[in-house]
Amino acid sequence: MMRGRIIGSCSDPAALEGFQWFICYLTTGKHMNLYYSFGTVLLLLAITAPAALAFGYGGAMAARSAFAPLRWFGKAYIAVVRGVPDIAFFLFFVIALDQGFEYLRHKIKCPDWNEPIRQGSDFVVCAAAKLPPGNAPQWQHETYGFLLAVLTFAIVFGAFAANVLYGAMRAVPKAQLETAEAYGMTRKQVTRRVLIPQMWVYALPGLSNLWMVLIKATPLLFLLGVEDIVYWARELGGTKTPNYTQYPHGDWRMWYFFGLLVFYLAFTKLSEVVLERIMARLNQGQATSGGEAQRKAAA
C-alpha cells in the first residue's frame, strides 16, 4: 500500500487515483506503441511527400513530352487517378503491387514452374518468390507492408502533384522562356535553369493544398493493414475489464479519437503557418500579384 504512494511508481495501479492514475495509465507499454505510431505517420509523410513530388514531376514531364505515347501515358495517369475515389486506389494498389512483385520474382526465380498462378480463388507462386520470404521475422513483414503503403500513396498523390506541376509549368510567363532562348540556351538548359526555378511560385498554392490533403489521408494507413494511430486508438480505447488489464476502464474510444482529431487540427494549423511563410519568401521579386503587394509594402 505504501509503495503505491511513492510519486512515479506505477507498480500498483489499483491504489492510484486521479491524476497519478492517468500518468501511469498513459505510459503503459501499449500507449508507447500509440506514441510510436505518431512517428509512423510522420515517417510516412517524410517519405511520401518527396516520392509523390518525384512521381508528379515524372508525370508532368511525360504529359508535356513531345513523344506522343509518353504524353498519352502522362495524361492518362493524371486523369484516371483523379476520376476514381482514392480509397479504391489504396485498396487496389496494395494487393495489385504485392501480386505484381511476387509475379515478377516468380517469373525470374522459378522459370520451370508450369502450374497456373491463378487457381480459382488462390494466387499461387513458388516459395522462393514469396515476399517477404515465408520464414522472415515479423519486422520484415511490417516494413514490407509499410513500404507498399508508401508506394501506393506516392502513386496516388503523384498524379495530383503531376496535375499541379503541369499547370505550373504552363503558367511560367512565356517571355521568360523566350528570353532564355534568346540568350542561346538549349531546350534542356531552359527547362533546368529557368522553367523549374520559376515554376515553384505558381505550383506552391496547389502543392500546399496537396500537402494538407496528404496529411488528412494518413489515417488511411489503417486500411492498408499498418498498425497506425487509428489502429491503436481503437485498440486502447475499447472497454477493458479488470481481469484483462491493471487499468480497467469503460469505452473510451470516443476520447481517443477526439485526441486524434485535435492532433490533426494542430498539425494542419502549423502547416498553414509554415506554408504562408514559404509563399512570402517565394513571392519576392516575382511578377505576380503577391510579389507586387510585397514591393508596394516595402516602398
Binding site: I215, K216, A217, T218, P219, L220, F222, V230, A233, R234, G237, D251, R253, M254, F257, F258, L260, L261, Y264, L265, T268, K269
Partner: peptide, 14 residues
C-alpha cells in the same frame, strides 16, 4: 482541418 476518416470514427463512437 481534420480527416473525414477520423471524423467518422469520432462521430460513431460519440
Amino acid at each position: 482541418g481534420s480527416p473525414l476518416f477520423i471524423q467518422f470514427f469520432f462521430a460513431y463512437f460519440l
